[in-house]
Amino acid sequence: MQKIEAIIQPSKLDAVKDALVEAGISGITIFEARGHGRQKGHTEFYRGREYAVDLLPKVKLELVVSDEMKDKAVDAIINVARTGRIGDGKIFVSRVDEAIRIRNDERGEIAL
């Protein structure tokens, strides 16, 4: 099993969710996040006042999928979230040892 963590633009969330559902993945956890990578903060002026935009709004998705589904999920996210501009986000993939459904103690991929 693989855990996929994706940090994407908030405006892409709905489209990414749809793409994942279409790819056969329905279990997703979503977090409101803030941060920056190479897309550094900047300063904005508003009616004569200055505001620092140091951390930018992002959305973080977490999903755990079977090994076979990993590439499908990653491709679905990339296809939709990519604009080609700085700030499109990142995807991190890591191995998951166990999954347990609390309700009935099912374990492994069946619990996903």
């Binding site: 996040a33 803030r34 508003y46 009616r47 709004p57």
Partner: peptide
């Protein structure tokens, strides 16, 4: 997070 997004849009729109 939502409050910040709202504020950013407010500023950008005012400008």
């Amino acid at each position: 997070w939502k409050a910040e997004s709202l504020w950013r849009l407010y500023m950008a729109t005012a400008n």
